[in-house]
Amino acid sequence: MPAAPSPSAFSPVRWEPRIYPGSLDQASRVRTDVRRDLAAFPDSVAADVALAASELFANAVEYTASSGENGEAVRALRLSAPDRLRLEVTDGGFTEARPAIPALTGTDWFTAERHRGLLMVSAIALDWGYFPVYEHPSLNLGLVVWAEFGLDPAQVPSGLDRFIHTR
């Protein structure tokens, strides 16, 4: 694998965002696209980011207007630092709910049929969170839910500019 750029030579890079119809049957396409976009990275990184992308996409479709008529969700990836890969999924808005890990206790986690996706994201990512697309007191234009993944800078492939757009 080619050597990674030195930290002093690093410039942030961003993959072209991908827009998906707001349907749960698109989750496999989200995973496939992430794996393709991260093909030059170690497989463990691509697998973790693909799992998180699938979970965040499913939440966007399940709990927001993304699943409505003509609904969509947007997936973005960026290398924000030499040792950080950031995933973002933007939903279609129109819900009062905010992403949170449910407060299940004891064996409830073992028998729960749903609501474990953010717990998985929390376990595989360095951190996760959300912010509104646009701060406005009466408009809900959606949330951007993000997760950051740690990278060994030596494993970041060189020549990424052939595959992505810098901004």
Rank of each mutant, 00 (worst) to 15 (best):
P99C: 13
E96A: 14
R98F: 09
T90V: 10
A103W: 11
A100E: 08
R98M: 12
W109H: 09
P82C: 06
S80M: 06
D91V: 04
P99N: 13
R98K: 15
T95E: 05
L104T: 06
P99W: 09
I101T: 02
F94H: 15
T95G: 02
G93M: 11
D83I: 02
T95Y: 01
P99T: 12
R84C: 14
D83F: 05
A103F: 07
A81M: 10
V89T: 10
P82N: 04
T90L: 05
A81H: 03
R86N: 01
T90P: 09
D83M: 02
V89L: 03
L87G: 08
V89W: 04
I101R: 02
A97F: 06
L104N: 08
E88L: 06
T107A: 09
D83V: 05
F94M: 08
D91C: 10
E88V: 08
F94W: 04
A97I: 06
A97R: 10
R86H: 02
G106Q: 05
G92K: 03
R84H: 10
D83Y: 01
S80F: 08
R98N: 09
P102Q: 03
G92N: 09
S80I: 13
T95A: 07
R86T: 01
P82V: 06
G93L: 08
D83E: 00
P82M: 02
A100I: 08
L79H: 04
D91N: 12
T90F: 00
D91E: 09
R84T: 15
A103Y: 07
I101G: 06
D108A: 15
A81C: 10
S80W: 09
L79R: 10
P99G: 13
D108T: 01
R86G: 00
F94N: 15
S80R: 04
A81T: 12
R86Y: 04
G92F: 08
E88S: 08
A81E: 14
A81D: 12
E96R: 12
G93Q: 07
D91M: 07
I101H: 00
A81V: 07
G106P: 15
I101D: 06
T90A: 08
L85C: 05
P102K: 05
T95S: 13
T95W: 04
E88I: 03
G106C: 11
